[in-house]
Write a protein that binds this DNA or RNA. Structure first.
Lengths: 198, 198
DNA sequence: TAGCCTACCAAGCACTTGCTTGGGAGGTCC
DNA sequence: GGACCTCCCAAGCAAGTGCTTGGTAGGCTA
């Protein structure tokens, strides 16, 4: 019925979660069937329910553990002692590192957050969304007041611009490709900070 | 069996298509059932098949007519006699106008192109993707060779950056909101061209 | 007024969906 | 060697899926 008493004890469970996450990221949550997951794992669909309560709980676990890790890292940057511009660069780099190391989770969050967020179980997604907004707005405000960023920026639009440009890269970036995530982050930062005009 | 001999003759059909498009955009294609569409239209699901062959043909018609209109407009900009920077600005503005006026179609294309593209019927989506790449790469190259854009740009990454930042706005932009699509385009262009740094 | 048309309903078919049930093979612990 | 545990299979259920079928009401045309 329930999973192992200590979830981390069994790594079969962790592997099933990884397989499910990859499929959710590739085909979408609703578009991935429990039979798809079971096939990819080499077992029958019913056997998945020895490890997990439901399909929902799989994606729930993936998103929660990823987000708690991500936001802890954001908080560290916010609390650090460095110039505003360096903080922004660090936050952008962190996001690209997340795309590299937690590709499935980022993709799932980007593609399914709107849909899942309507379910009560996933109401924390809206909270994390607000939290993300506060992180970036704080960084942008610090940047403006310190003189590192243009004072004539529309804060709200600038926030959306930064947020979107950072996370949308999950659509094409593939771990192990030509460029490392830090190289991509460098290029994005030069464009974001200084623009493409000469 | 088949639809009206002249599709534009009946506007009931056009309205059903609009209703379906809104639902596809909001809930996703697979996640929208023919019963959802019929409910929203106030008829029974079977009655939809008097107007359309299949659910697939509905989204097909939406995407094809939108894209043929969009790329005709891009071609006009490419062929026009104006400086490289003005062409880029025009192309960005055109994209935001499309988000405003064809919100559902843009959202569907952004969210479903990867999935639908795997079906042979929607193989033209990949062609349009290449065509879009050629449009933007041409604009960027003209910008660099004319001196309007920085010469040290990574063309490939710059293209992805521009493409993504333009279309991803469909996620939050809502027609009839605080800002017009042209105001949003202005803000995006200042950031894209000159960056957020001071 | 006969023939045809558009737009729809009522019912249901074949299939897919997430999930449940009962059980069994192989290992571990005392 | 008995009790327990982990991990899985075999079979199937109820709900939901896209789509089909036969039919009907009301209008338009000759």
């Amino acid at each position: 019925m329930s999973a192992a008493s200590t979830p981390e004890a069994t790594n079969r469970r962790a592997e099933l979660l990884r397989i499910a996450g990859d499929l959710f990221a590739e085909k979408g949550f609703r578009n991935t069937t429990v039979r798809d997951i079971a096939d990819a794992a080499g077992i029958l669909s019913g056997s998945l329910y020895h490890h997990f309560d439901s399909k929902e709980s799989m994606v729930d676990e993936l998103l929660q553990s990823f987000q708690s890790e991500l936001f802890a890292a954001y908080d560290e940057i916010l609390a650090s002692e460095q110039p505003a511009r360096a903080k922004i660069e660090a936050a952008v780099r962190l996001s690209f590192a997340a795309i590299d190391q937690h590709h499935a989770e980022v993709a799932i969050f980007q593609n399914e957050a709107d849909q899942l967020g309507r379910l009560e179980r996933f109401s924390y997604l809206a909270d994390r969304n607000k939290q993300s907004r506060e992180v970036w707005m704080t960084l942008l405000r610090e940047g403006i007041s310190s003189g590192a960023l243009r004072a004539d920026l529309d804060l709200e639009l600038a926030y959306r611009f930064v947020r979107d440009t950072v996370w949308v890269a999950v659509r094409w970036y593939r771990p192990g490709g030509d460029l490392t995530h830090d190289q991509v982050a460098d290029q994005y930062l030069t464009i974001l900070l200084d623009g493409i005009a000469s």
